[in-house]
Amino acid sequence: VDYIVEYDYDAQHDDELTIRKGDIIKNVKKLEEEGWLEGELNGKRGMFPDNFVKEIK
Rank of each mutant, 00 (worst) to 15 (best):
V1Y: 06
V1R: 11
V1F: 05
D2H: 13
D2G: 08
D2P: 05
D2F: 13
Y3K: 02
Y3F: 04
Y3I: 02
Y3R: 03
Y3V: 14
Y3W: 08
Y3T: 03
I4P: 01
I4Q: 07
I4D: 03
I4N: 04
V5R: 00
V5E: 00
V5D: 00
V5M: 01
E6T: 13
E6S: 04
E6G: 03
Y7K: 15
Y7A: 15
Y7R: 15
Y7F: 04
D8Q: 07
D8R: 05
D8S: 07
D8N: 10
Y9V: 02
Y9H: 05
Y9Q: 02
Y9S: 03
Y9D: 00
D10W: 14
D10F: 14
D10P: 11
D10S: 12
A11D: 01
A11L: 03
A11G: 09
Q12V: 14
Q12T: 09
Q12E: 09
Q12L: 14
Q12M: 12
Q12H: 13
H13V: 14
H13K: 14
D14N: 12
D14F: 11
D14Q: 10
D14V: 12
D14G: 10
D14P: 13
D14A: 05
D15P: 12
D15E: 09
D15V: 10
D15L: 12
D15Y: 09
E16A: 07
E16L: 03
E16M: 06
E16S: 04
L17I: 07
L17Q: 01
L17R: 01
T18H: 06
T18I: 06
T18N: 10
R20K: 13
K21E: 08
K21W: 05
K21S: 07
K21F: 06
K21D: 03
K21G: 08
G22S: 05
G22Y: 09
G22F: 09
G22M: 07
G22I: 01
D23E: 15
D23R: 02
D23S: 08
D23V: 04
I24Y: 05
I24D: 01
I24R: 06
I25T: 01
K26L: 07
K26G: 08
K26W: 10
K26F: 10
K26S: 11
N27G: 10
N27S: 13
N27D: 10
V28A: 13
K29F: 15
K29M: 11
K30D: 07
K30R: 08
K30A: 12
K30W: 06
L31P: 15
L31M: 12
L31E: 11
L31R: 14
E32I: 08
E32G: 10
E32V: 14
E33F: 13
E33T: 12
E33I: 14
E34I: 09
E34T: 11
G35N: 08
W36M: 12
W36P: 01
L37P: 02
L37D: 05
E38R: 11
E38A: 10
G39I: 00
G39W: 00
G39Q: 00
G39H: 00
E40N: 09
E40T: 10
E40R: 07
E40D: 14
E40G: 07
E40H: 09
L41D: 02
L41E: 01
L41G: 03
L41K: 04
N42Y: 12
N42R: 11
N42H: 13
G43E: 08
G43D: 08
G43M: 07
G43P: 00
K44Q: 13
K44G: 06
K44R: 14
K44M: 13
K44D: 09
R45Y: 11
R45N: 07
R45L: 09
G46L: 03
G46R: 02
M47P: 06
M47D: 03
M47Y: 07
M47A: 08
M47G: 08
M47S: 12
F48R: 00
F48S: 01
F48K: 00
F48E: 01
P49W: 08
P49A: 13
P49Q: 14
P49K: 15
D50Y: 05
N51K: 15
N51W: 08
N51S: 14
F52A: 11
F52P: 02
F52N: 05
V53K: 02
V53N: 03
V53W: 04
V53L: 03
V53R: 02
K54L: 10
K54S: 15
K54N: 11
K54R: 12
E55H: 02
E55S: 03
E55F: 02
E55N: 02
E55P: 15
E55W: 02
E55I: 06
E55Q: 04
E55M: 04
I56R: 02
I56S: 03
K57S: 15
K57R: 06
K57P: 15
